[in-house]
């Protein structure tokens, strides 16, 4: 097999290894958020009533819309990979574009959600936060930290996908070399994966 490859492969590339590397990175991300979920669960157990009352402050509608937007974008990014594998450059561009649009919609929703809270004086370090009792304080601190860290991941994912978008456009990313889009898509699915747990924990279980 190596002899066979020596004739055909002019560049050194190992897609399997880059994907494995991406997965290992995803493991660290999962455990990072896993740790936060654990902290959330323990405090939820200890300050049950406060967490219950606080979670009623969140809009389930906005949360549900964002869930659907993220699930949809997860599908379109997977479709962009299918398109590039089929050497359909135009469709790949459209699907990455839709994914980026969904990401933007998610962030706009998040902006209004956070904006509402901040408008009412509820943000980390605010006077209102200092007046809250321990349970409410912990809930909103965790809410801002976890959704904030998640939003940061959305932004990083968007940057990755924008890079993919330009590479597809310049045909550097094509049906023979698409591991970057594969890894970008994996990262985007991770963002979706985290939200799948964040949504019921933060918005629904009240």
């Amino acid at each position: 097999m190596s002899e066979h490859n020596a004739i055909h492969v002019e560049e050194h590339r190992d897609d399997e290894a880059s994907k494995l590397g991406m997965w290992l990175f995803i493991f660290t991300e999962l455990l990072l958020f896993g740790g936060l979920f654990l902290v959330y669960s323990i405090f939820r157990m200890q300050y049950h009533t406060a967490f219950h009352e606080s979670s009623l402050e969140l809009s389930v509608t906005i949360g549900a819309i964002n869930t659907i937007v993220l699930l949809f974008s997860s599908m379109t990014v997977a479709m962009s990979l299918t398109a590039i594998q089929k050497n359909d450059q135009k469709r790949a561009l459209i699907f990455i574009g839709i994914t980026l649009f969904c990401a933007a919609v998610f962030l706009v929703n998040k902006y209004f959600e956070w904006g509402g809270k901040i408008h009412h004086g509820l943000y980390p370090g605010s006077e209102l936060m200092a007046l809250l009792d321990r349970g409410h304080h912990l809930y909103f601190s965790l809410y801002f930290f976890m959704t904030g860290l998640h939003a940061l991941h959305i932004i990083i994912g968007m940057i990755l996908l924008i890079v993919c978008l330009f590479k597809v456009k310049s045909k550097n990313l094509n049906n023979k070399d698409y591991v970057l889009l594969e890894n970008g898509a994996l990262y985007w699915h991770l963002v979706d994966l985290i939200w799948i747990f964040l949504f019921p924990l933060m918005y629904l279980l009240s």
């Binding site: 990979l81 299918t82 594998q85 070399d177 591991v179 594969e182």
Partner: peptide, 18 residues
């Protein structure tokens, strides 16, 4: 070539999953 061993998933399958 050893690269690009990824399986191609059809659009229809992805839609059903969604």
């Amino acid at each position: 070539m050893a690269n690009n061993t990824t399986h191609t998933i059809e659009y229809k399958t992805l839609s059903i999953v969604l």
